[in-house]
Simulated assay, not measured.
Amino acid sequence: MRAGRLRHRVTIQRQRQGEGKDEVGQPVEGWEDVATVWAEVTGLTGREYIASGGEQSEVSMQILMRYRAGIDETMQVIHPPPTGGGETYEIISALPDARRRQLTLMCKSVRRS
């Protein structure tokens, strides 16, 4: 893998479970950083559709990075400034190459309200 392709800084996060309780006694969940790595972020497709009476949009992304064990579909990727616009992507699949030198993350955009 050529290092010159890895020009975007991304942060991989996993969901934090049960770190406390809110005012009604429910567990508080959030995200914690696993790693911040250099990667290549490429847009694949984008589409708009109508669901639940409202217009929705979805963007599919491919994120290529050096191989790192433990990355899976329960995690998300943040693409913060200056190399990104603060986008959040849900990992759909994590695909290592045969020699485990690189990892391709297939992702979709996440809209946070």
Rank of each mutant, 00 (worst) to 15 (best):
M1L: 11
R2T: 00
A3T: 02
A3F: 08
G4D: 10
R5D: 10
R5I: 00
R5G: 12
R7N: 14
R7M: 01
R9E: 07
R9C: 08
Q17V: 03
Q17C: 05
Q17Y: 09
G18Y: 09
G18L: 05
E19G: 12
G20W: 01
K21I: 00
E23A: 13
V24W: 14
Q26L: 09
P27K: 00
P27R: 04
P27V: 00
V28S: 04
G30W: 07
W31A: 05
W31M: 06
W31R: 05
E32H: 02
D33V: 05
V34K: 04
V34L: 13
T36C: 07
T36H: 05
V37W: 06
W38A: 07
A39W: 14
T42I: 10
G43A: 09
T45H: 14
T45M: 12
G46L: 07
G46E: 09
R47Y: 07
E48I: 06
Y49E: 09
Y49H: 10
I50E: 14
S52E: 11
G54W: 06
G54S: 13
E55P: 02
E55K: 14
Q56I: 00
Q56V: 02
S57E: 10
E58M: 15
V59R: 15
I63N: 10
M65H: 13
Y67K: 04
R68L: 01
I71D: 03
I71N: 00
D72P: 02
D72Y: 01
E73A: 15
Q76E: 01
I78H: 13
G86E: 03
G86M: 07
E87H: 12
T88W: 15
T88L: 10
T88C: 11
I91G: 04
I91T: 04
I92V: 11
I92A: 08
L95Q: 15
D97K: 06
R99K: 05
R100I: 00
R101A: 03
L105Q: 08
M106P: 12
C107W: 08
S109H: 06
V110G: 01
R111E: 13
R112Q: 13
S113D: 06
